[in-house]
């Protein structure tokens, strides 16, 4: 009984739209040793990303593999420290936080990984997997832990008899439900979803996306949704951040990004996403080449070797921030300005 009171109290404290995370110019660099005498080289996995997360809102991070979106997730979940910039979660500054403060914060940010086949321990029963976060972080009794785990299973649409089963007895969709339930056990305020549906079939993907939406509403959670599937992003996101080679290239509300993308990379991504309509005619921008190595990024605008509109200036200067049509983009020649000057 006490439990439920606490829950309702906690829920009442949460107002939709309340800012729960502020990231300012986050960087995450790795040193790559070059032998005993060589100077180590720096790999800039994330190089200056700024965003905020609000309760009840979803920020989607989009980009190709190697663009730093998973590293960003690791920094936000405090698996890895940021090497620069500031990160504030709730009212705590993560960079200067003490160990005990960090420990408390970690339960506030939880993550659901991409591959539900790899993220669950095959030797651990579902019940034990769900109770483990409570065992480590709280001093609830065994009975209370089991009660909480069972309640959470019901929340995510698992049946009570699943409590004593092993992960191999479940399908991909159900495993992802288990992973989501486990992430919710500590009553977090931020959920980081690292490509939660990319390993699932379409019909199962729809079930999981629906579940995520329900849970967001019920618990007023802030989502950081990492994906490369733009049709999923369009469905679930409120804000979108497009990343390329560790740096955001365009940021804005979902509607603005999908209606009038400004950065050529966003345009190319949108046009490369297959649309399930054989009768629709569209122009496709096919990018040549692949993502360059982040150890030796191209000078100037990092996108210029693949950009269909690259000019001379792009090879020399880092592009400035542009605010056009409701989106923030980093480009010398955003689409709108280009079409205006052409007219």
């Amino acid at each position: 009984m006490v439990e439920t009171d606490m829950n309702s109290q906690a829920k009442a404290d949460r107002k939709a739209g309340e800012t729960v995370l502020v990231a300012d110019d986050i960087k995450r660099h790795y040193e790559i040793p070059q032998g005993a005498f060589g100077k180590p080289r720096i790999l800039k996995a994330v190089d200056g990303a700024s965003f905020t997360l609000q309760r009840g809102q979803t920020l989607a991070v989009v980009g190709e593999s190697g663009c730093g979106k998973s590293t960003l997730a690791r920094v936000v979940t405090m698996i890895e420290p940021a090497s620069g910039g500031s990160l504030r979660i709730g009212k705590t500054d993560v960079v200067n936080a003490s160990r005990s403060q960090l420990a408390a914060l970690r339960s506030k940010v939880q993550i659901v990984f991409q591959n539900p086949y790899g993220s669950l321990n095959p030797r651990q029963k579902i019940g034990a997997a769900l109770e483990e976060p409570l065992l480590v972080n709280t001093n609830l009794s065994k009975k209370q832990r089991e009660a909480k785990a069972r309640a959470m299973m019901a929340e995510v649409g698992l049946r009570p008899e699943h409590y004593d089963r092993y992960p191999h007895m479940f399908s991909g969709g159900q495993r992802q439900r288990i992973a989501i339930a486990r992430a919710l056990m500590l009553d977090p305020s931020i959920l980081v979803l690292d490509e939660p549906t990319s390993a699932l079939d379409v019909s199962i993907q729809a079930q999981v996306l629906n579940l995520l939406r329900d849970i967001q509403k019920r618990y007023n959670l802030a989502y950081l949704f990492i994906s490369h599937d733009l049709s999923v992003v369009r469905y679930i996101a409120d804000e979108v951040m497009v990343m390329y080679l560790g740096h955001p290239v365009e940021q804005g509300s979902r509607d603005a990004i999908f209606a009038s993308p400004q950065h050529p990379y966003t345009k190319a991504l949108l046009s490369a996403t297959p649309v399930a309509d054989p009768e629709g005619k569209r122009e496709r921008i096919v990018l040549t080449g692949e993502l360059p190595s982040p150890i030796a990024p191209p000078p100037g605008c990092t996108f210029h070797p693949r950009c269909p509109m690259a000019a001379d200036i792009c090879k020399r200067l880092v592009p400035p921030v542009q605010r056009v049509c409701g989106t923030t983009s980093w480009c010398h020649r955003p689409w709108e300005a280009e079409t205006e000057s052409a007219a």
Partner: peptide, 20 residues
């Protein structure tokens, strides 16, 4: 299967296919 595609979604809920 076609209705379950996120890009064809019209309402708040995606029409999913129950079960496996």
């Amino acid at each position: 299967l076609l209705a379950a595609l996120p890009e064809r979604a019209t309402g708040d809920q995606l029409p999913s296919i129950p079960g496996v």
